[in-house]
Nucleic acid binder design. Sequence first.
RNA 1: GGGGUAGUAGGGUAGCCUGGUCCAUCCUAGAGCGUUUGGGACGCUUUGACGGCGGUUCGAAUCCGCCCUACCCCA
Length: 478
Amino acid sequence: MDDDTGTLPQKGDFSAWYNDILWRAEIMDVRYPVKGLYVWYPYGFAIRKHVYAQLRNLLDRDHEETLFPLLIPEQEFMKEAEHIKGFEDEVYWVTHGGRTPLEVKLALRPTSETAIYPMYALWLRSHADLPMKYYQIVNTFRYETKQTRPLIRLREITSFMESHTVHATWDEAEAQVEYELALTCEFYDAFCIPIIISKRPDWDKFPGADYTMAVDAIMPNGKTLQIGTVHHLGEHFSKTFSITFEDKNGEHKYASQTCYGISERCIAALISMHGDDKGLILPPISAPLQAVIVPITIGKRHEDVLAAAEKLKTDLTAAGFRVKIDTRDMRPGAKYYWWELRGVPLRLELGPRDLDAGKVMAVRRTGEKTQIELASVTDEVTRVLREITGAIRARAEEHTKSHLCTVASMDALDAALNEEKVAVVSWCQQKGCADVIEEKTNASILGTNARSQYVSETQGACIVCGKPGKATLVGRTY
RNA sequence: GGGGUAGUAGGGUAGCCUGGUCCAUCCUAGAGCGUUUGGGACGCUUUGACGGCGGUUCGAAUCCGCCCUACCCCA
């Protein structure tokens, strides 16, 4: 393959690859003239639609979807002290209605606790109302001061799923945290994205939470991307917002709460984890088009081939697949590259030769090329798409496994990080030792209590002070 | 938070210091016509820009001011 034909940067240059593929594959347009705000192209939005449909399916098992306002009055926003401290530098304020200054400033939600919880206080009366499990998928605004990146660090998060649950006891809320972590695992597994769950250190938890469980994925360059969080809020917010209920004995008690969030970073992970030098690779469940039919129309067989392609499309569509025929006036080769860039999992090439043989050429985005019988095409496509999903998952797992290692000294940690790996070290859980680790390695403590099939819980001596420590993830982060 | 560099058509560049053109230029970019079509075809025709607002000037992509945006470095 000629070097000068591929214009997409190699995936090894991940940052350039990522920026380039977003517009080449028509996912996001970064040219909107406000910093940190980006535009979804229709193709990108179609991917989003399928990803979020899956998220809704999972949540709808036992949550209910709702919708709260974008604007939050200042006095509500300012109620919970820790929460304010965490967000006040990043809040956009609406100060005017037309030309009239507002008496009460209105915050554009950076997250919705302070919009939702005053209403929860009104809605919750009795233990019979519990548990309450609601979620919404909305945009949120944060005035990011660090460098913004499409889908990753945004001033308008366009697709923030936030779940807010209320429970009678702290233990029930804790069980809910576990349940939502399990949902997250299932969600990411559907898109073949390996994740690592860990408990964030205290200084990195959500402002106003008892503790934060975070979900990270390892990007191609070894940096981690936080793609989900579940927070146990304890009674911080219920005390502030008077979210109380009458228990069976008639006593008034504060509720215990959780919140849980996933944003369009999940799509950044989807793109980054699976794509290659040729472009996107979309797991079939997320692909706007699961198969594209490229008719090879030569000479007088035009009509025969097109008719056969139409029938093939009709059969596959009836079987529930998302399929399109590419009838554009382009050479077939150009179409192949076009759809490979956009990550379509399966290409079906249908020409006169195939037609005579009663077959169609099936080319997988993951590499293999086989002939399948037209007579049993829906069964074959079902099987092939399942195998493609399996191949994508295996590749992602291999990548994640190869970017993780366990080390026992600062030097080894530094070396591992420079090899673009995430490391597991023993750490005594003292802030002082964490500062030493973070400063010397220019990396971050991700968390403890790691849960991953790739990381084993180990006990050992803290790599800084030598006291007994716990297995802790350290990595460079986005 | 502090500092630096930059913004020219769909994308990429030159021009700017030293203000003055009828056509600036390159492309896997756009539009049109024709010949093509089993892994990125070719010919011809053609469109299109100086980030925004204001200032200086007979005249501004070029000089000045403010703003917006992007990228890089340092905390």
